[in-house]
Amino acid sequence: MIPAQFDYAAPATVEEALSALASAGDDAKVIAGGQSLLPVLRMRLNAPSLVVDLSKIESLRGVRDDGDALVIGAMTTYQSILDDASVHEHLLLLVKAVETIADPQIRHRGTLGGALAHADPAGDVGATALALGAQFEITGSSGSRTVPADEFFQGLFETAVGEDELLTSIRFPKHTGWGAHYEKFVRVSHQWSIVAVAATVKAEGGTIQEARIGLTNMGDRPLRATSVEKALVGQQATEDAVRTAAASAAEGTDPPSDLNGDAEYRRSIVPVLTRRAVLAAAGG
């Protein structure tokens, strides 16, 4: 299938991209890796008059060490994240989640910023960014602002990024030395998460000191399992202790019902997936 006609611009700077967006009103669309947008355009679920390609804006690409955080440009591809030694060292959870996304071809094109701006509740980087306490840099014609992860995601495919704004970078506090695991529940390889749990854990001598847990596809946006996080503090990373702490993982969630499973099914598997994720993250 072929998209409807559109005009195309490939600006070299963020400023030029913003003015291109402003000139087309609310009828313009940004294209990053295109791995979500092109399927949408080909299915004719959307027909923008102008497509603004961010791929020529070099400043939006790459991973930068900023002391206690890594700052990742919105146009950094999944593959570049997997290839980056500093991400492996400081943000293991992001590596674990990105490894499970789609397939190599899509990871070569898809970008972190594109995935986060798309905000598909079944997408794998949202819960991860939430668990890691990411800060989102959003840039508009009047400058940049920073939004924390729990305000960035606003609903189904809805974020804090306005129509005439761009997500420019994502700042992740370093989690050096934290164990991590992304437990993705799918029926076949190469599927979107039915439910997934992103867990990163700081443990010493088998005792959990701190845990951060994000849930994928348990609501219209990524969620944090705060009650489980609290219950894990001070616990031994044993099967029994973690099972008990993970029992409340479905608390406060509002999962969808679809062909892969109804809401009740999702609520009943999320504690199991949470236990697995935490045990694996704690090195169990």
Binding site: Y8, I31, G34, L38, P104, Q105, I106, R109
Partner: peptide, 8 residues
Amino acid sequence: SVKSCNVL
């Protein structure tokens, strides 16, 4: 590698 149906 890329999927050429998903690239303009």
